[in-house]
Amino acid sequence: MKKKWLLISSFLLMILSGCDNPLLIFDPKGPQAQTISDTILFSILMMAGILFVVYVLFAFMLVKYRSSKLAADYEPPHEEGSKWLEITWISIPIIIVVILSVVTVRSTVDVENTPKAYANEKPLIVYASSSNWKWHFSYPEEGIETVNYVNIPEDRPIEFKLYSYGPITSFWIPQLAGQKYAMSDMVTTIHLAADTPGSYMGKNSNFSGKDFAHMEFEAQVLTAKQYDEWVQDVKETAPMLTEAEFNHLLEPGILGRKTYRSTHLGFSPAPEGEHAGHQHEKNADMDMGTMHENDSTIHGEHQNN
């Protein structure tokens, strides 16, 4: 037991001191991940306090009341319980839960909205959609689309709009923000911002079938200037994303990186607004396409309208 306590304290020390190679969760590169990292560290400290109390009591009881240390004729007394002790160990945990509840609600509000420091800026919107087993990123304003990598500018609020062309996936860039599910019949939103340029690991964290383990992407944070240059470059050099090409991309499999100078949002809109819940397929305007019928797109049997 002592060994375990040592392990825990050294583990805490390791992350608190922020040594050379901190754990991913404790190495945030944006305000949202920072908020969560702080929340987690706070809760670890609280929990360490609880563990300490339990372990001290436990060790005390075991050392003091083991039968080998007691007289052979010692008979333990009959004890019903103690009102005051019980009130103590009900009320203190309640206080702890209340404190943690306040922290939870506040931090959840923080990470579910545009980061405070950027509240007045117009966010960059990126649609991130998953299909087996890759990520598609569409930039509606810029009119460009990428596969399996995403470039974003630093110091600007970003909104990722998430949905899926198949199983539920979970969009996660640990160093920038917590994760959220991408689902086929609704759009969810992640708010984040990045304050340090660099390359960060992003992945699907929700099991989605055979090649789920390979469903990673690179999230690259660029300076505003670099970002603009990259957008310009894509617009000039990348090919168009046609519907046929997009259907091809949706087929199950693993892909490398791809870049296009148009998005799939025109012919295959995200399931939001009137497209939510997939109820408007066949009777919707035909120019909206029937792209949401995942069974036809997955098998690549889409009929052109």
Binding site: I25, A33, T35, I36, S37, T39, I40, S43, I44, M47, V97, L100, V103, T104, S107, T108, D110, V111, S170, W172, P174, A177, G178, Q179, K180, S205, N206, F207
Partner: peptide, 16 residues
């Protein structure tokens, strides 16, 4: 650790 996981914001990093 269950209490830690119960905190919704933190769970966004622990989930899965």
């Amino acid at each position: 650790t269950g209490v830690m996981l119960a905190m919704a914001s933190a769970d966004y990093q622990y989930h899965n």
